[in-house]
């Protein structure tokens, strides 16, 4: 199965069960890289359908304080891209995985090399928050050749023209629910339903929502309007608070999100 097909299958399975897909995010290298296989397993057992694996970057300008701290944490341990690939190579089963990476990481490696390595590390796709669609042709071609999907992003400020352009996209649509960076927020932004509606009118892909979802109750609300729910900062905050029991924290919190989506 190509990465695109794996992603489609994960959303299909969730839909058959009458719920939104659950997509937790973890930064590779927090608390350390050795813990990553165990965390991925815990996320799978807790009911994650897909997992975003964050590649730490020195200048993560789309991230709020929690994920910045996670990236700094990972880099301070000397985590290298080659080590991340090697670790992921060894984890064959578990939920479908997509990378979250900044564009400079991809360009420095060379898009073709990066995507080839990502495919061998069993990744199904890549989310690149600072690569707008219009600049992304070369990277998308490289991904396609390797069977990966480059996940299109939309925001409340997106133009109709952009939404029409990403109709050619693959995997799923990552909808940024607020104008802002990643992080936990008290309430889910009011414009979410409207954004999902605008995307669905033009794009035939599942829509997952991220940025600012931090509690099971918020996940439940978002799960009613979208095909997928992405949770990053709230999970990483728990892992960084109790690094010695990272996998257990990941399991417990993800389990509570999954139960909220089933309710």
């Amino acid at each position: 199965m190509t990465g695109r097909e794996q992603i489609a299958e994960a959303f299909r399975k969730a839909r058959q069960q009458g719920r939104a897909a659950l997509i937790p995010y973890v930064t590779a290298g927090v608390p350390d890289l050795r813990a990553l296989p165990e965390i991925l397993r815990a996320l799978g057992e807790a009911g994650a359908d897909l997992v975003e694996v964050g590649i730490p970057f020195s200048d993560p300008l789309a991230d709020g304080p929690v994920l910045q701290r996670a990236a700094t944490w990972a880099l301070a341990q000397g985590v290298r891209l080659a080590d991340i690939w090697q670790t992921l190579n060894g984890v064959v089963d578990g939920p479908v995985r997509v990378a979250l990476t900044y564009v400079n990481t991809v360009l420095r490696r060379g898009p073709e090399t990066f995507m080839g390595e990502a495919a061998r590390a069993h990744l199904a796709g890549a989310i690149i928050p600072d690569l707008p669609w219009i600049e992304g042709l070369e990277v998308r071609r490289a991904a396609q050749a390797a069977g990966l999907a480059v996940i299109p992003l939309v925001a409340p400020t997106s133009t109709d023209q952009h939404l029409e352009a990403i109709a050619q996209g693959e995997g799923f649509v990552y909808a940024v629910s607020v104008t802002g960076v990643t992080g936990m927020r008290e309430e889910v932004a009011a414009g979410v339903e409207e954004l999902v509606r605008r995307v669905r009118e033009r794009v035939d892909l599942p829509v997952a929502i991220g940025f600012g979802i931090s509690t099971p109750e918020q996940a439940r609300q978002v799960g009613k309007v979208a095909d997928g729910v992405i949770v990053g900062s709230a999970l990483m905050a728990r892992i960084m608070e109790a690094p010695a029991e990272a996998a257990e924290q990941a399991f417990r919190f993800t389990r509570s999100l999954r139960q909220a989506l089933e309710a």
Partner: peptide, 10 residues
């Protein structure tokens, strides 16, 4: 070029 998050493209 313009390597900015989608929120800033507009």
């Amino acid at each position: 070029g313009r390597y900015v998050p989608e929120t800033l493209v507009a």
